[in-house]
Write a protein that binds this DNA or RNA. Sequence first.
DNA 1: AAATCTTACGGGTGACGTAACGATC
DNA 2: GATCGTTACGTCACCCGTAAGATTT
Lengths: 110, 110
Amino acid sequence: MELRQLEVFVAVAEEMSITRSAKRHNVVQSAISATLRKLERQLGAELVARTTHKVELTDAGRLFLPEARRTLAAAAEARHVLEQLRGGLRGTLRLGVMLYDGVLAVSPPA
Amino acid sequence: MELRQLEVFVAVAEEMSITRSAKRHNVVQSAISATLRKLERQLGAELVARTTHKVELTDAGRLFLPEARRTLAAAAEARHVLEQLRGGLRGTLRLGVMLYDGVLAVSPPA
DNA sequence: AAATCTTACGGGTGACGTAACGATC
DNA sequence: GATCGTTACGTCACCCGTAAGATTT
């Protein structure tokens, strides 16, 4: 299971369409179809019910969807903290107190 | 960014060693080294400081580690709910009330 | 007939193992 | 000298695009 596969599944679940999610991912239908099938095979569960012209979530799919979203959100947050650090907005803040001229007491690291 | 990369990073962070995390992943050192470098390049941040014989987390690495763990935990939970469903332990529970003989009032789906 | 999903095939990218090198303990 | 991390290279699987086919509207 990889994040890319989860993105594909969530897109399909939201669009209820392989064609539309393919456009959303800027790839071709067949790529989405294959990625989704592989994910299902790896998980050992059918997430989407196919009817040659429509796509519906199975019970497993409905159960899996919020978990997939949660995982993607966590991944996004992981990227985010690094961006914040990049911008100097985050890091380890250590405070100090000037005891008297030239002597600074500093909080221990981490 | 993919889950596999996060697993590698967390393993390296926990073991503080590329060699040991390689054994943990049942792959070779060079594979871990390459995977980690690629992750860092993609994120645009150095996560571990290398000193040819040691490995240390950078500030970015320390910041990233709990987020990576959170993401992996979410992924594990996603797999877990499917396993539970597989075992018949979860699903959508719908309740009904027998109004009178042969007439059952059932809660609406989802 | 148009739209949608699937399968088959070829090409490029990524991951891994082997091997050789450099640096540190 | 042994250990640890890196680099170079060949191989194999995976992802994607193209193309053709099947089914539904």
